[in-house]
Design a protein around this nucleic acid. Structure first.
Lengths: 213, 213
DNA sequence: GCAGATACGGAGGCATCCTCCGTTTTTCAA
DNA sequence: TTGAAAAACGGAGGATGCCTCCGTATCTGC
């Protein structure tokens, strides 16, 4: 299972921020570098948070009061920047999954998690665009956050499948993909209600039940 | 119902290509203009058909052997070009809806139509990108094709609702949006099977059923 | 305080978007 | 047939964005 392996390495590497992996004593990171990184992140949160996930990176750099080169050094791609900006959010969703797993019945946990996801996204305008990028590119394979979310939903899914409550032929990736898709590009007022309803429909469809005849 | 009105005007205008609307005797369209329009369309079909919905418009113009200015004169926006390229496809889907309405039971008609949509999209690589644009922008309001699809699915939906087979609180827009979303950004091999399964789940969720107690 | 390591930043090459306008082609009426 | 006006052509050019590269500035450990 090469994919999971790569993921674990990635998480380990990121979490500890380069623990003496192999052959690098490496002095501590420079103060100005850390400062600038924070500035860029802050600017990105501001700019993307305004809903413009496609804002130019130059605008972000300008907002941060930093050269474009500096931005690219810290975040080589737009995805990397999104990743850093929304990592926190993904972690919150993962934590929520753990909690729901303890506190709710399998299918309810899944259902509630998906609802929370929609509501969460609703408060973070930029996140939709970020998620779209994450889902649409194969970069999903390289995204810490996206894997976090996939794992979270997969735990909920597996539990519900094992309890015999939902069908077993829909993958976690498909679930997440659908969830993001439901949130995506709904910009009119009232989209949140639509999205929540669509989640209801979808979860209902996942249920194993007998149809009225 | 201002939206529908605007739509009708649009259809009429396009269909008859400017029938003496009000005060324009207007000479007949120039031959070279018509020829170039066709060339651009053909080139666009080729380029987008190869799956590159984000190809540069300059590339399309080059392929068509036409200046970039000419392309923009005929199709002021990328969406307008998509619209023209895939208008035909949308009409086919609309026709299919009519047929299914005669030949299948309400919910089956809806289900089959959605399946056909997925399969259809699978054969037209560029179409996914086009649909994404159409759905994501509010340009949906100004799109002939998108309205055609919305109307088609709405007829199927309404019929199924009236037959008491599906819930009545999901709009045609939501259905179409979800359908497109399910197709969107699935690029790995085997996406078609995933997508068809997701459609099954979704339609199942639309059903009015009694839960297992 | 110094030297080397590290980071900065923006100029510059490239691509795309889209507009504007001088030139060319077509149409129509005389 | 012809010539002038209308219509369309096409591409140069200004604007913006992406990303890289490298001369310069700053920091850190000694």
């Amino acid at each position: 299972m090469p994919k999971a392996k790569a993921l674990d390495e990635k998480i380990a590497g990121k979490k500890t921020s380069g623990r003496a992996a192999d052959k690098k004593p490496s002095r501590k990171p420079r103060a100005d570098a850390a400062r600038n990184r924070e500035r860029v992140l802050e600017a990105a949160r501001t700019v993307f948070g305004a809903g413009a996930a496609d804002a130019s990176l130059e605008a972000v750099a300008r907002t941060a009061g930093v050269g474009i080169g500096t931005l690219y050094r810290h975040f080589p791609t737009r995805e990397a920047l999104f990743e850093a900006v929304y990592r926190n959010e993904a972690e919150q969703m993962a934590t929520l999954a753990k909690r729901l797993e303890r506190e709710a019945k399998p299918i309810d946990a899944l259902h509630q998690w998906m609802h929370s996801f929609v509501r969460f996204v609703a408060t973070k305008k930029g996140m939709v665009g970020a998620l779209a990028l994450v889902v649409s590119k194969d970069s999903a394979l390289f995204s810490y956050s996206s894997d976090l979310l996939t794992r979270a939903i997969d735990e909920l899914r597996t539990r519900a499948v094992n309890a015999g409550e939902i069908r077993d032929d829909i993958s976690a990736e498909d679930l997440l993909h659908t969830l993001v898709a439901i949130c995506y590009a709904h910009d009119h007022s009232g989209w949140q209600e639509s999205a929540l309803r669509l989640v209801d429909v979808f979860v209902d469809g996942l249920r194993k039940r007998r149809a009225i005849r």
